[in-house]
C-alpha cells in the first residue's frame, strides 16, 4: 500500500523551503491558512505572510501589487473561491499584466468530501485555462505538488496550481524529474493511453494494471501541466496507441479532457473518452463515496478504455 499524503501538505512544505532561500517570497491567504497549509509559511516567516481575511478579490489584487514591486506572491484559498470568486481580478490584473502571482488552491474536486458543492470545485481548471498568459498545473501527489510549487516560483509570471484536501497515495518519488509542461509517462503501453491529472493518476495506474490482466497494454501519462499542455505526449499517445482515455476530478467541460481533445482533433484524430464529472455539481459525502457516485474510480477508467478500444477496432479514418 502506497504512503498516503495530501498534495496541500506538499504545498505548505514547499513554501517553507522556498521562503528560506528566497526572501522575495510572500504568501497571502484569505482566512483559510490552516486548510491551505500556508500556515506553515506564516509560522516560519510571519513578516512575509499577509492574511486578507474573507476577501478573495482583495487577496488576488494585493498579491498583484506585491508582485509588481518584485515579490513572488503566492495567494491561496479553496479552489472554487481562488478561481471563481476572483476570476475577473485574475484575468484583468494578474494575467493581463503577466504579474508574478502564483495562485495555489486547495480543496480541488469533489474529494473535498462532506462540505458539499459550495466548497468543491469542478470548474476551476476550465476557467483558469481559458485566460491568456495563465499556466495551470494539477500535481498528482505530494512530491509532485512540492516540485510544481518550486518550479512555478522559479518561473516568472502567473500560475494556477490545484491541490487536494484529502490524503492520497504517493505515486512518485522525491528523485523523479519534474518540468513544467513536460508530461510523465508513468507506465508504457501500446493499445490505449490513459492521460490523467491529480489524484486520478493513481486511479489510472490501477486501471492499467487491471487492463493488463486481460491482455490490454495501457500507457499511463501524468499530465500535471494542463496549460501549456505537452502536445507531443498527446500526439505520440494518439499515434502510437490509437485510443485515449482522459481522467480528471473535474468537469468534462473545459478541463484536461477538453485540452487533450483540442490537440487530438487538430493533429491526429483517434477515439477519446473522458472520465470526469458529467456536467453536475458535487454534494456532501465521504470522499470515497463521492468518487464512486461521480464515476471517478479505476473501474470507470477501465470501462472507458474498453469503450475506446471497441471504437478503435472500427476505424472511420484512413
Amino acid at each position: 500500500m502506497a504512503e498516503m499524503k495530501a498534495t496541500r501538505d506538499g504545498y505548505g512544505e514547499a513554501l517553507v523551503e522556498l521562503g528560506g532561500v528566497n526572501e522575495n517570497i510572500v504568501v497571502l491567504d484569505a482566512d483559510l491558512a490552516g486548510s491551505t497549509r500556508t500556515s506553515k509559511f506564516r509560522d516560519a516567516f510571519p513578516d512575509r505572510f499577509f492574511n486578507m481575511g474573507v476577501a478573495e478579490q482583495n487577496l488576488i489584487n494585493t498579491a498583484a501589487g506585491l508582485a509588481a514591486c518584485g515579490k513572488v506572491a503566492f495567494a491561496s484559498s479553496f479552489a472554487i473561491f481562488a478561481s471563481g470568486r476572483a476570476w475577473e481580478q485574475v484575468r484583468n490584473t494578474v494575467a493581463a499584466a503577466k504579474l508574478n502571482v502564483k495562485i495555489v488552491s486547495s480543496h480541488g474536486g469533489v474529494s473535498v468530501g462532506p462540505d458539499g458543492l459550495s466548497h468543491q470545485s469542478v470548474e476551476d481548471i476550465s476557467i483558469m485555462r481559458t485566460i491568456p498568459n495563465m499556466r495551470v498545473m494539477v500535481p498528482c501527489d505530494y512530491w509532485e505538488a512540492k516540485k510544481a510549487v518550486k518550479a512555478a516560483a522559479a518561473e516568472s509570471g502567473p500560475f494556477y496550481i490545484r491541490m487536494g484536501r484529502s490524503k492520497s497515495p504517493v505515486v512518485t518519488s522525491e528523485d523523479d524529474p519534474f518540468e513544467i509542461g513536460v508530461a510523465v509517462v508513468m507506465r508504457e503501453g501500446t493499445d490505449v493511453s490513459i492521460i490523467a491529472c491529480g489524484i486520478m493518476v493513481e486511479a489510472a495506474l490501477r486501471a492499467a494494471e487491471e487492463l493488463g490482466e486481460t491482455g490490454v497494454s495501457a500507457r499511463v501519462i501524468d499530465m500535471h501541466t494542463i496549460k501549456p499542455i505537452d502536445g507531443s505526449a498527446v500526439i505520440n499517445a494518439a499515434r502510437e496507441t490509437g485510443a485515449i482515455v482522459t481522467a480528471e476530478e473535474h468537469s468534462v467541460i473545459g478541463g484536461l479532457g477538453s485540452a487533450v481533445s483540442e490537440i487530438v482533433v487538430g493533429e491526429c484524430p483517434v477515439p477519446v473518452k473522458m472520465v470526469g464529472i458529467q456536467d453536475r455539481f458535487g454534494q456532501s459525502g465521504h470522499p470515497d463515496d463521492l468518487m464512486r457516485e461521480y464515476g471517478l474510480e479505476a473501474k470507470d477508467i477501465v470501462a472507458a478504455a474498453r469503450d475506446v478500444l471497441k471504437r478503435k477496432s472500427k476505424p472511420r479514418y484512413g
Binding site: 510572500v26 512575509r48 482583495n58 494585493t62 498579491a63 501589487g65 506585491l66 514591486c69 481580478q89
Partner: peptide, 16 residues
C-alpha cells in the same frame, strides 16, 4: 481593483 493593488505595493515598500 486599484486600491487592493496599491495596498500590495505599500506592503512591499514596508517589507523592503
Amino acid at each position: 481593483q486599484g486600491l487592493s493593488i496599491a495596498n500590495g505595493m505599500a506592503l512591499a515598500g514596508r517589507i523592503d
